[in-house]
Design a binder for these strands. Structure first.
Lengths: 343, 343
DNA sequence: GCAGAATCGGAAATCGTTTTCCTGGAGGTT
DNA sequence: AACCTCCAGGAAAACGATTTCCGATTCTGC
């Protein structure tokens, strides 16, 4: 591998001069030497060793990104947004996937700390387990003590800069909208009990219902993914066909679960939206062409990822939380229902 | 930031001993000192500086991954597979997205070279532009001269280890299967003219048709994404409704384009599969719940990503190409059509 | 007990850069 | 002409690890 020293020797200048020419320096170097160095560098095909640069400069140009699952379009969108701003600032991104294992999240922060990345971005919901949260926070604190910056996309529990999706607010708004369509009895595919994002959405939804004087929704817990939605909806299917239950609308706490629910209903001959309305959350772009098109709450995921990185990169003492509000979008998976007979 | 020297001093041992204890070394160190060092390290919260390690060892534990677009589930799946094996080997992954700009791909290889990553993985189709390809190859050669390893997922044009999806073969098999359903006149949403993956699929499809003595398909070029599929299919819509054309089956060269096509047909009141059959390629997992479910060619994308990294990491002199065959899966978007009157 | 082998611990060189400090010469001012 | 300032260029000290030597033990076998 050709080193800076090779370049310097080949150009007949000192190491210092070569360094000043090739990598941004405040110091000037004379035109003739400059030309010689540049020539030598291209001839030899010199590529700076970033590890050495990082060591000498004490600061790298790498940022770390931790997501649960890249295949999940939710995280892919956030990652994409973050990577776009990273690129625009000449930074390079290290991505780690936890596959929803909190231990791996902690381990990954530790790894990124070792890499001395200049910022780490944590995307996605954490479990409500206080022990795990504490250890994650410790790891992050250690990282910050070394001058690292941290930002999150998700709930604000790590006193770091955070882009907070309006989960409760969006779900509440969705609940009010659906109630406005005439729905009275709801079921919620609530995801895992310990997942904060899921909990917030359920709470916002149920809270709004209560505020309207409507009965509490029926909650079905399960995994946060497509199959979880399928299973949960399957368990609900009987309740929908049985007239005494009277559930007319199902809220899945995210779009991929809603997709599973749609499939479950279809497999059972339950028509959406004729027999039951279905709504999701997130407005995943890849899923916009579903039939029936999913009513959901739109979150600007890419912007959120981008914004989080901007927060992390912008050095400010106190932690900031930016609320991103979701926008209810009604499509074909929900319909207006006629006024119901009381009780 | 706490350094190894701090740990050593705090434990009352030399730098060498501390290093041997904390980071895998062939040398043994006595139990008492070992304990002291470990204690000091955890007390101080020591995290090795990977940049320094990489410099001293001359080898890092980072691999680079270049994809076109993380939001595209095709690349997300490949990335996921690669990251799983990276993780299992204690490696960390740097991801770059080119957003289909060949220049950015080259630039990214250069960046990864500077990072001295131990392997780079290139995923996705390259353009057929020979000039761009040459420059990419030069950059890769420079990287390999420095001891780097390269592997690709996609076509084998860089004499590096390659996982080659059976694009032509899969498309041919699909064509034969569809012909077996009775289809005679086809249209192909062919993607960009310069994209190798798209070209291979078109060629395989058309070739198989020719082999069966069927007329050449009507080709519609356009972007490789959902909207490209929509536009291309919209342009086709007239041809389908007009009886003289008689196109009964549309092959979109990838699933996301097929999704766009489905939407275009739906918007125009053309029913799939009653009025026209539609098939895609890739079998994207996120899209399995579409209605009608998409007939397609399944590629084991995650395995392909994983395998590519394994190839890259397994040091062998000559470049290997591994063909991954796709499997035709028929779902509801294609139907059998009755025998047609000749001519 | 003693030679030789094995082993453990430490001093110092090394990795590829950046950056501080120093030096010598050019240019400007009285 | 003497003095001072400025500035381009180079020597050398970081940066934070690993690793090669080398010296000092302890162990082994006779």
């Amino acid at each position: 591998m050709v080193t800076l020293e090779d370049v310097a020797r080949h150009a007949g200048v000192s190491l210092a001069t070569a360094s000043r020419v090739l990598n941004g320096s405040t110091r000037q170097v004379g035109a003739s030497l400059r030309a010689k160095v540049e020539l030598a560098a291209t001839q030899l095909g010199y590529r700076p060793n970033v590890a050495a640069q990082a060591l000498a400069r004490g600061a790298g140009n790498v940022i770390g990104l931790v997501v649960h699952d890249l295949v999940d379009p939710y995280f892919a969108a956030i990652a994409d947004g973050a990577m776009r701003v990273a690129e625009s600032r000449g930074l390079v991104v290290m991505v780690g996937t936890t596959h929803r294992d909190p231990e791996r999240e902690i381990a990954y922060v530790s790894t990124l700390n070792a890499q001395r990345v200049c910022a780490v971005l944590l995307a996605g919901s954490r479990t409500a387990d206080p022990h795990v949260t504490r250890r994650l926070r410790e790891e992050l604190d250690r990282y910050r003590e070394g001058g690292g910056r941290v930002a999150c996309v998700g709930q604000d529990l790590l006193d770091a800069d955070t882009v907070v999706p309006g989960n409760a607010e969006g779900a509440a708004e969705l609940a009010r909208t659906l109630a406005g369509l005439g729905h009275r009895r709801f079921a919620v595919l609530a995801g895992p009990a310990g997942l904060v994002t899921a909990r917030d959405r359920v709470a916002g939804f149920a809270g709004a219902l209560a505020g309207l004087g409507l009965p509490a929704p029926r909650l079905v817990h399960g995994p946060f993914d497509r199959d979880g939605g399928y299973t949960a909806a399957a368990g609900l299917a009987d309740g929908i066909t049985a007239p005494d239950e009277g559930v007319t609308c199902v809220f899945a706490v995210n779009d991929v679960m809603a997709v599973g629910a749609l499939a479950a209903f279809r497999d059972r001959g339950i028509r959406v939206p004729q027999d039951v309305s279905v709504a999701g959350f997130d407005d995943i772009a890849t899923l916009r062409d579903l039939v029936p098109a999913l009513s959901t709450v739109r979150l600007p995921l890419q912007d959120m990822g981008a914004r989080a990185l901007e927060l992390a990169l912008d050095p400010v003492e106190e932690a900031r939380a930016e609320l991103v509000t979701g926008e209810v979008v009604l499509r074909e998976s929900t319909r207006r229902v006629g006024p119901q007979a009381p009780g």
